[in-house]
Computed example of a mutant assay.
Amino acid sequence: MSFDLELAGRRALVTAGTKGIGAATVALFRELGARTLTTARARPDHVPAEWFVAADLTTAAGCDAVVKAVEERLGGVDVLVHVLGGSSAPAGGFAALNDDAWLDEFRLNLFPAVRLDRALLPGMLERGSGVVVHVTSIQNRLPLPESTTAYAAAKAALSTYSKSLSKEAAPRGVRVVRVSPGWVETEASVALTERLAEQAGVDLEGGRRIIMDSLGGIPLGRPAQPAEVANLIAFLASPRAASITGTEYVIDGGTVPVA
């Protein structure tokens, strides 16, 4: 029996597709035959210009530029994957977070998805088909008070928005799902591991242990790889998951304790 995900020919937009989870998702989608466009602030040399849009999605103008490129190059989308996210907030708990820090977290982790959905979802609804994938984070349930309060709150807002959108879109043929990663070993994560290891005077594995301990442990004993998250995204975006909508899929090696 074939397990073809039937993504060949589908039109897809994947945000933040030059590194980490986004890059892995773009690579997999293109391998599976999807016509995939991606975006980031700047194009790395290894990313072909014909399927890239340079834009700052934390701004309305940046989102408008991506929407225009999608319409011109793809004529709309069948799959929209929101990978963009991250945090630049200072450590130090709630008292270290001023209004600008809070706004920056929401500008990066919530507003780009809201703006792109608002522009591109109507075409899906008109056709009566499509999939939107919001990449959230286990931080929305497991925030780290010292360093991720604002990021976790923004991701929680994204999750709630996504759930509401799924209820509105599902009756009109469009599925909306969430993927909630834990610690994923991206380029940025490796750099953090190396920095923590150097500060603590331990080797790289010791640095990884510091991060896992800060999360309360990872029963699987390791972080996820970007390709593993991309595999989940591709399945959920495919017709193989045609009855799945409105739900959040955690991929965290068992980090979040559940009953």
Rank of each mutant, 00 (worst) to 15 (best):
E50Y: 02
E50V: 12
F52D: 15
A55R: 01
D56W: 00
T58V: 11
T58G: 15
A60L: 10
A60G: 08
C63T: 11
D64R: 03
V66I: 07
V67E: 07
R73E: 07
R73H: 09
R73G: 10
L74F: 01
L74G: 08
L74A: 09
G75E: 06
D78Q: 05
V81D: 08
V81Y: 01
H82W: 04
V83F: 05
L84N: 02
L84C: 07
G85F: 04
A89W: 02
A89E: 07
P90Y: 04
G92Q: 03
L97H: 03
N98K: 10
W102H: 14
D104G: 09
D104P: 09
R107T: 09
R107M: 09
R107H: 15
N109P: 05
V114Q: 08
V114M: 13
V114I: 14
R115G: 10
D117T: 15
R118M: 11
A119P: 13
P122T: 13
G123F: 04
M124Y: 02
G128N: 00
V133M: 01
V133T: 01
T136H: 03
Q139Y: 02
N140P: 11
N140F: 11
L144R: 14
T149N: 10
A150G: 10
Y151E: 11
Y151C: 11
A152T: 08
A153V: 13
A153T: 12
A154S: 09
K155L: 07
L158T: 06
Y161F: 14
K163H: 12
L165I: 12
E168I: 08
A169C: 05
A169W: 12
A170I: 10
P171D: 03
P171A: 10
R172M: 10
V174L: 00
R175L: 03
V176F: 07
V176T: 12
V176L: 05
V177Q: 05
V179M: 09
V179W: 03
S180F: 06
P181F: 08
G182Q: 00
T186M: 04
E187S: 04
A188T: 15
A188L: 14
V190T: 00
V190W: 01
